[in-house]
Structure formats: structure tokens, C-alpha cells
Design a protein around this nucleic acid. Structure first.
Lengths: 237, 237
DNA sequence: GCTTTATTGTCACGTGGGTGACAATAAAGG
DNA sequence: CCTTTATTGTCACCCACGTGACAATAAAGC
């Protein structure tokens, strides 16, 4: 087993982490971080569990992945030394979106997100995380959709896209969730990266299966059934 | 033309924006925001231009899109009232990743990112944006890759994925950029959402065309040629 | 060094979704 | 209300990529 690395200000600077922070701030955060050695293939956290730590990779490579509808794993990203990861913990009440596991033997350190923010930015954690949610939360929702597109059929992609739209533009209706938005099949096609014709076909199929219905040019969707079509577990999102 | 909306604390609260901010902070930010009416199809900003404002959507729908390799437009997202957008401006030196245009007639207000951060979070902008870059910057790079996957062939997706890997794990070599990472074709397949067999075929093709070469199980890539294969303009990223 | 296991290379075959072409509607505009 | 234009519906054909099935290497373990 590799010997324990030294984790001090010099190491942090060499890894080009936290460039804005003063030496003093870095010292303080280091005193609150703990160090773990993780062997290749060990899972650090799984998707769906509560996000309660920020991680910092000192050496090795960490892999972020996701389960696709057909039980395959989507490789989302590989993390290199000096990177922070597990940052869903910077937003309130979020769950892990990806599984993280050691791609090679790693040294990792972790810290509580509130300690991270208050130490390095000197701002209350609740304010910071609320701002994060209001700004980059949207990016996160996008990333969620796009990563889940991987390995999905057009039918599943459509369901995912409609789910996101229902969350943003949906109003409750006796018959389901109505999208207050005039979307053409061409718009949907551009959204899921498909041809207009195939979107028309699949939308009819989904209507036939009572997953959605059309009222003039407004759509009424049934989120639970969409989730089912998209191949998401019922507890997801 | 619709009459000018009132933009005051009540409006902000109704739109559920900035929930963490005090009335006083909201008043202050409002006094620094300016209001624009934007007609359907008007472009607010294009991808590639410097990011110098944060936008807030008051009414209407804004569309974010992207040019795909085959000149089609990828619809990345639709923004609903109450959302902030154009937040690449919260990170240092970033360019717009997407084009934003009015999907319907809109009322939008904008503010300088430094004013936004200092007013609502009371923290120096340079510190904040450096932290953003070190944390959510990675998400952003992922989103970049995944949005560019839309409408790309496997060949182009591979090129994009290898480019991202070269930036993270590349070291300069006499023959190009060497990836200090042992990746199997199966890993690459999981990364781009393809089958292992097709990845093998395309990697050979890329090697034959001198876009990359193999030294044992290490890859040496030529970023410029990868960019060309990926269908990116040379100034992108 | 030899065996076992992981990775790469190569095929034949099937299929989901792209493309083009057009008809049938529905909306918009005068 | 009638014309024009946008959207939806339907089909035939094609192709890039997935799948399964092996052989050929290369790496790892003993």
C-alpha cells in the first residue's frame, strides 16, 4: 500500500486547488478534512443517497457513473487529482446523482459542505446553497437529463424531456399535468435530438397508451407514467 | 405591446426568486437591474461571445440552443419565468455556451454578475467566481460535452470525449498529448454511449488518419485534429 | 515460462431511427 | 371567409450502430 501522502498547503498549491484562498484559509480547511485511502473499484457513494460531504481527490482517478434504463452503466466522468467532486452537497437537500468509485487506487479527503463554504468563502452556508440552487441548479437538471439520455431509446428520451417540461411549465389539471406551452413536434425533436417524423410517431404511441393526451395544441401529461416509460425508479427525482 | 411590468419585491417573491435574500437586498439588486422587452425570436446573446450579464426572466419563455456539427440547432433548454440564466457570467473569463433567444415575447431584466454576487451574498466577486469555477466548472464541462453529443456521430462523440480527457489527463509528448490513463475500449464505449465493437473500429480509423496513435496501452492524441473531427470551430473551447 | 484472464479485432445480421416526399389538417393573416 | 402557411400524419427506403459470436493478442497471476 502506498504511504500516506502529506496534505499541507504546499500540496494544495501544487494541485492548483482553491487558488483564491489564503494560506490561512487553506490551513483551516485542511484541519477539518479527513483523509481516506480507497482501493480500486471501491464505491465511495451511490446515486440516490443523501449528499453530505464534499470530496477532494489527491491522487488516483475517480469514476462517476450512472445506471441506464437497460441496467448498463454510463460512465459520466473521470476525476483527476486536484478536483473537487460530490458537489451536489453544496445544494440544499440534494441526493447523489452519480455513483463514485475508485478507478485506480486513490487518496481522497472529505469535508462537510458547510465547513467548506464558511471556511473558504466566509458566508453562511444556507445563503450560499440557496444561491447555488437558484443558479447552477438548472445546469444540474440539464446534466441529469443529458446523462440519462445515454443508452435510452427515443421513447425514453421523450419521456424524460416531457418530465422536465412538466416540472417547469406544468399546471395541475383534472386530467393530469398541463404544459402551458405551445410546443411543436419539431421543438421536441430538437430537444431530444431526433427527427420530427419519429417524434410524431412516438407521441401518438404515447397518447395511445394514455401516457399523455392532447387538448388542442396543449399537452397534458401524466408524470408517473412518464417516469415509468423513462425507465426511472419511482423514487428518483 | 404588453405594458411594462412592475418589478418590485412583491413580484420577486411571487416568482419565488432569491428566497434567501432579505427585502433590503432584493430592493438593492432591483435598483441595479434594467428591464428589457424582447420580441419573439430576438436573440439575446449568441454562443461564443463574452459573458458579461446575468439575466432574470420575468415573463415569457426563453430558449437556449446550440449549433450542432451538421448546422442543425440543438434545443438545450427552455427557461420559465422566475429563472436566472446566462450564468456562465458567474465564472471567470467564460464565454456563452448557448444562444439565448425569446421563444415568446418576454420581459427580461439583467444585472452585472459582480453586482449580483456582492449584493445578494455580500462576498467579493473574484473569490466567488473562483470557487464556482473550481466546483461547478466541472459540471459545466460535462454539460458542454453532453449537449455537443446531440446530433453527433459516434466518431464525433469519441473525438469530443478524447478532447475532454486530453485536457484533464494529458501531458505533452513529442508526438502529441499523451493520456496518462489506461482506458479500455469498453471504458470509452461507456463514456460515449456506444458499443465496444464500434469503438474499436472507430479508434482504428482515427489512428489510421493520424488523429491519434497507441503506445502500448497509452493513447497519444492530437487535440487540433480531434477538434476538427468533432466538428468544432477552431476557436471553440 | 506457462496458464488464465482481459482486451482487441473482425465478421454477419438485425433494427431503430434518419431522410425525403407528400397528403391531411389546423392555424394565421388579410 | 378564404387564402396562405405551419404543423401533423404516413410511408418507403437506407444506414449507422447494436448484438452475438469468435479468433487473435496482450496482460496478469502463479
Amino acid at each position: 500500500m502506498a504511504r500516506t501522502p502529506v496534505l499541507n498547503v504546499t500540496t494544495i498549491r501544487r494541485l492548483k486547488a482553491f487558488p483564491w484562498a489564503s494560506d490561512q484559509q487553506v490551513e483551516r480547511i485542511l484541519s477539518q478534512m479527513d483523509l481516506h485511502h480507497i482501493e480500486k473499484r471501491t464505491v465511495l457513494f451511490n446515486e440516490g443517497v443523501p449528499s453530505d460531504s464534499v470530496y477532494f481527490l489527491i491522487s488516483g482517478v475517480v469514476k462517476l457513473s450512472l445506471r441506464s434504463p437497460d441496467e448498463e452503466r454510463v460512465l459520466v466522468s473521470l476525476i483527476s487529482p486536484g478536483e473537487l467532486f460530490g458537489i451536489t452537497s453544496l445544494m440544499p437537500g440534494m441526493y447523489r446523482a452519480f455513483r463514485s468509485e475508485a478507478f485506480s487506487d486513490c487518496w481522497v479527503s472529505s469535508v462537510r459542505p458547510d465547513v467548506f463554504v464558511t471556511t473558504l468563502l466566509n458566508v453562511p452556508f444556507t445563503d450560499f446553497s440557496a444561491l447555488m440552487e437558484g443558479t447552477v441548479g438548472r445546469w444540474f437538471a440539464l446534466l441529469y437529463r443529458y446523462t440519462h439520455f445515454q443508452g435510452s431509446s427515443l421513447r425514453q428520451k421523450l419521456a424524460l424531456a416531457l418530465l422536465e417540461l412538466a416540472q417547469k411549465f406544468g399546471t395541475q389539471d383534472a386530467r393530469g399535468t398541463m404544459l402551458i406551452l405551445q410546443l411543436t413536434h419539431e421543438d421536441l425533436a430538437d430537444l431530444v435530438g431526433a427527427s420530427r417524423q419519429k417524434v410524431t410517431e412516438h407521441m401518438q404511441e404515447l397518447a395511445r397508451q394514455q401516457v399523455l393526451l392532447r387538448d388542442g395544441r396543449k399537452l397534458i401529461v401524466h408524470p408517473d407514467r412518464l417516469r415509468e416509460v423513462a425507465g426511472l425508479l419511482l423514487d428518483e427525482k
